[in-house]
Design a protein around this nucleic acid. Structure first.
Lengths: 67, 67
DNA sequence: CACAAATCGGGTAATTAGGGGG
DNA sequence: CGTGTCCTAATTACCCGATTTG
């Protein structure tokens, strides 16, 4: 069912994801190549990323201080 | 049978297809000109795209992250 | 018929892909 | 082993005025 709705997912460009993690866009590309994050290719070969997956990944890597 | 029912096939505008891939509508028309995606012309010259073809294309270019 | 929004065309910037090397 | 940078080629984004759409 998730796959059936992937078309309605909001997508992000490599540059937008890079700005979110404060890394170089090339690094985001490497994450995609390594399979660390899912990606959708345009017919021209450019990558797009699911916003929900990016947020989930960001939250999963977040650690709070003990206070 | 698919061809026989092409009149019932849902058509999409360049803007709708662009939103699915997160690209500019102009980019979609370039895909059509390059033959990367099939297109139908209105009598006025505007392009329309088959929904089934767009979804198939999108699914084929989608890759999941390996967990 | 008038109107707003979208999609023609073309042209020119800005991103991205990919390999290579530090 | 992951990341940032340099490079070239390819793809995509934004600009305009004119036309089509609904």
């Amino acid at each position: 069912m998730t796959i059936a709705h992937e078309a309605s997912e909001r997508l992000m460009t490599p540059g937008e994801v890079a700005a979110m993690f404060r890394v170089d866009p090339k690094t985001v590309t490497r994450w995609a190549s390594a399979g660390r994050i899912g990606s959708i290719r345009t017919p021209g070969g450019h990558r797009r990323f699911r916003e929900s997956e990016v947020r989930t990944l960001l939250d999963g890597l977040t650690s709070e201080a003990h206070h």
